[in-house]
Amino acid sequence: MKILYLDTSSSFLYSGVVINNKLEASIKKEFGKTLSIYTLTEIKKMFSSIKMSLNDIDKIIVVNGPGSFTGIRIAITIAKTIAWSLRKKISTISSLDAMALSTTGYDYIIPYIDAKRDYGYFGVYDKNNNTILPNKYIPLSFLKNYIKEIKNYIVVTNDNIDISNKINYDPDILNIVNHYALKENINAHLVNPNYLKLTEAEENNDKRN
């Protein structure tokens, strides 16, 4: 099976092509606010480098969040448009799941994505990647208290937060793709972001009602 992996949920573009359990090509580049400019050209370059076309792939695995709202939408829009137009299989995965799958050697793996104002998205996984606490939007203080109670843990984050035992996120694209290669496919029209957070306008409306 030939799988395209795509993640623009942070300031990085992470993408790769996995063919029969081998990572044939990959991209790990920070673009910040220029992700919308370079994502497609980088994908095109990646496919040329392995002399493949988009039409050769069988399936797309796309990260649907949480993370940067605009960032998530870039990969989702590209992925659902490819899947719809070329009738490719597609499934989504959580950015936090991808982060956990890229980390080994700890009893507790805790991916954390900063969401500003001392809040973030996090999840807790055991060493076999089973979910201990599901993906959630939490105050940073919650994470700080949580790690006081556990041992042999690691926090995976690319954000500059003040916390002990943390490592940077470096995606293990092959492992992520292999883990989710057989995940159930969904209709391309229904591939949508999972923000884990309402917009401010909706939150304010909820408070008023």
Partner: peptide, 12 residues
């Protein structure tokens, strides 16, 4: 959203 979809269609 429109731009990314249009660019993808143009590429595909």
């Amino acid at each position: 959203i429109g731009i990314e979809a249009a660019k993808t269609l143009s590429y595909v």
